[in-house]
Design a protein around this nucleic acid. Structure first.
Length: 658
DNA sequence: CTCCTATAGCTTTTT
DNA sequence: GCTATAGGAG
């Protein structure tokens, strides 16, 4: 038995043991939020709730994995393993696949659907805009997808869209055709048997709405639900939770309104601010003691966040040592700024016996990492950049994954288009365009056309037909081997597709790197197979691999390297983490806060919360740096110091340059 | 009809 | 600085 009283503070204990109804835990930065969640789940299990009937939704897959491990240490590994825990997207993808397998046709998809990432979605929109002969400069994939995403996050299906306020806004911005694009986009994804990120939520919501018996089954199955990072949930996520907790009302939401930083992705801070309206009778607990940072850091952070208007009152405090003041440095150029950071790191290491692991550089925008990367590399200091161009977004990796996707789900049009002539096999743009035209006019998928040569044979030369059928037979031969494990089949595809050969024979340096990345991917698949070989129901096929990998981000890649290194990441990527020494770099007006955020007061508030998040990652000492001149777009631009620096109460900050 | 090279255009944050 | 597009050569 766990001694909860011993392990938790009073308020943490109260939050953990309250199980009589809806609950909201306002967890200030560093207040032991994860601790409360893990102990609470352990507590529920110890008090008789079967672990497979607990639903726990986290923000990243990594957070879920770590939490499971921690719960496993508290109770038993076997019990923790069965908790239904993961991101909204991964849990609902599983539910959708399960239901699609059970009741064929419950939605216009099969359980083998693939998940489109943003690139795939934008490519689809681009094709549609072209097909509809609209101006691609007006209807850019980014803007259109943003509108569609907004609609989906508000449960607006294509048929409801024309009557929605979104359609009205579109007309004002001369984007009246978005509604039609949305319609076509949805049909295109359905015909590709593909869902984008938002569809995973929308289709779950629709499934529960249109099939009361399914909703009821899940709502009664889950006896208790918990949501982490509730401040970053969006409207449809809240609605799905309402569907799942309608009868039981057993929901524990944990979050911190001061750390809501995903409004750009549809998160509505309203969810946490008005939680009691959705769950009457909610009991609220506030975790206000910060165990992570020094008093100075906590006070400085408080002085920043109090400038924001809309927030839940709380008094974050620390009983840790007072600690050093925040250090402020401003360099003439970004090189001086980087120099300062590296010199400080070196100084601390020699002085205080630190390792590179103790230092983290945080920035608002990915491109800011460059100047630091340059110096770190030149100095031979080990470092690692988190985020930015993720491993899974690299071209060579996406190409390989596209092969896998086509094998599992040949309707996947974006994947098919990607690989049909890569490596080049004599099926060029002209041929592809003709195939697409046939596909559109016949209403069949590209793969349907491809796999029935007699449909298209009259349109092409004999030579082209041979090339098309060769490709068809290649893919079909892999499709007939899906009983093989993922590694064996993936290896076969790499070799037979000519990808490996192409990179291997190339003399270009970057192609060698690509070759190594493909090898790394294969090694990853191998360990995936090893990991799942001994599961109760071994899931080691290529299909299983694709399912898992399409919702993985680089934040989920576990780093088990033993050598210490300096970490570089965006502030967004740092959420939930903590580091002894933090450098918040690029503290320049128009960089942080970024220029776009001045357009509305609410986005400026979000920038300030982001600054708050950055500061509160710090355990010991925080440095804020900026530069008057930065190299960007091939030339230097001048910057003013960030206005956020003035938001910090001056007693907690000191200048460290002459 | 395909492949290679030069040029333009864009960079907030991400499941 | 890097990726999609356009235009020319084979």
């Amino acid at each position: 038995m766990i001694d909860y009283k011993q392990e938790l503070s009073q308020v943490q204990y109260d939050a953990v043991t309250y199980c009589d109804g809806p609950e909201l835990v306002i967890a200030g930065a560093g207040s032991g939020k994860t601790r409360v969640l893990t102990y609470k789940i352990a507590y529920l299990i110890e008090h008789g709730i079967p672990s497979n009937r607990i639903l726990a939704l986290t923000f990243t897959n990594k957070a879920a994995k770590e939490m499971k491990e921690r719960i496993g240490q508290l109770i038993t590994k076997e019990l923790s393993y069965r908790i239904v825990m993961g991101t909204f997207h991964s849990i609902f993808a599983k539910i959708l696949r399960y239901e699609l397998q059970r009741y064929r046709g419950v939605l216009p998809y099969t359980e083998k659907f693939t998940i489109y990432d943003t690139d795939d979605s934008e490519a689809t929109i681009k094709n549609i805009v072209k097909e509809m002969c609209l101006d691609p400069k007006v209807y850019t994939p980014g803007t259109v997808l943003c509108r569609i995403s907004k609609a989906k996050n508000n449960m607006i299906t294509p048929d409801l869209y024309p009557q929605s306020s979104l359609a009205y806004e579109d007309k004002e911005h001369h984007l009246g055709s978005v509604s039609d694009i949305y319609k076509k986009y949805r049909l295109s994804l359905i015909s590709s048997n593909a869902m984008d990120f938002d569809d995973l939520l929308l289709n779950t919501w629709l499934l529960f709405k249109e099939h009361e018996e399914i909703r009821h089954r899940y709502a009664t199955h889950f006896q208790y639900s918990l949501v982490d990072e509730y401040q970053d949930t969006n409207k449809i996520q809240k609605e799905i939770l309402l569907q799942l907790t309608k009868e039981s009302q057993m929901l524990c939401a944990v979050g911190d309104d001061a750390q809501s930083i995903y409004a750009f992705r549809g998160a509505v801070i309203r969810n946490i601010l008005n939680y009691e309206e959705d769950y009457p009778g909610t009991v609220i607990y506030k975790l206000e003691e910060n165990y992570r940072s020094t008093q100075t850091v906590v006070n400085a952070a408080n002085s920043v966040i109090k400038k924001n208007r809309r927030q839940i009152f709380k008094n974050l405090f620390s009983n840790n040592p007072v600690g050093e003041k925040l250090s402020l440095y401003r360099g003439e150029t970004d090189r001086y700024e980087a120099r300062f950071v590296i010199d400080t790191i070196k100084e601390q290491i020699t002085k205080d016996d630190r390792t590179y692991n103790d230092f983290t550089v945080l920035y608002r925008q990915n491109w800011l990492s460059r100047s630091f990367e340059d110096i770190l590399r030149r100095e031979g200091i080990p470092y690692k950049i988190f985020g930015g161009m993720s491993f899974y977004q690299r071209k060579e990796i996406k190409d390989m994954l596209a092969y896998f996707r086509v094998v599992v789900n040949p309707s996947d049009e974006q994947a098919l288009r990607r690989i049909i002539n890569y490596p080049t096999r004599g099926i060029g743009d002209t041929t592809l365009q003709k195939l697409i035209d046939i596909s559109i006019s016949s209403g069949k998928t590209l793969w349907d056309i491809l796999s029935h040569p007699r449909i298209y044979v009259s349109y092409f030369s004999k030579n082209t037909v041979t090339k098309l059928t060769d490709f068809l037979h290649l893919v079909q031969s892999w499709q007939s081997k899906t009983q093989y494990d993922a590694y064996t089949l993936a290896n076969m595809i790499c070799r037979e597709s000519g990808i490996i050969k192409m990179y291997h024979n190339s003399v270009k340096d970057e192609d060698h790197e690509k070759y190594e990345n493909v090898e790394e991917l294969l090694a990853g698949i191998k360990s995936f197979v090893e990991d799942h070989k001994n599961d109760e129901q071994p899931a080691t096929s290529l299909e299983d691999y694709i399912r898992e990998v399409s919702l993985l981000t680089d934040a989920d890649k576990n780093d088990e390297e033993n050598t210490p290194y300096v970490k570089l990441m965006t502030i967004h990527a740092s959420k939930g983490l903590e580091f002894p020494f933090v450098f918040v770099v690029g503290m320049d007006e128009d960089v942080f806060p970024c220029r776009q955020s001045f357009e509305s007061p609410s986005s400026l508030e979000e920038e300030r919360r982001l600054f708050y998040v950055a500061i509160t990652r710090t355990k010991e000492q925080c440095f804020l740096t900026g530069a008057d001149n930065r190299f960007r777009n091939g030339s230097y631009s001048t910057y003013e110091p960030s206005s956020f620096i003035a938001d910090i109460d001056s007693q907690y900050i000191k200048r460290v340059w002459k």
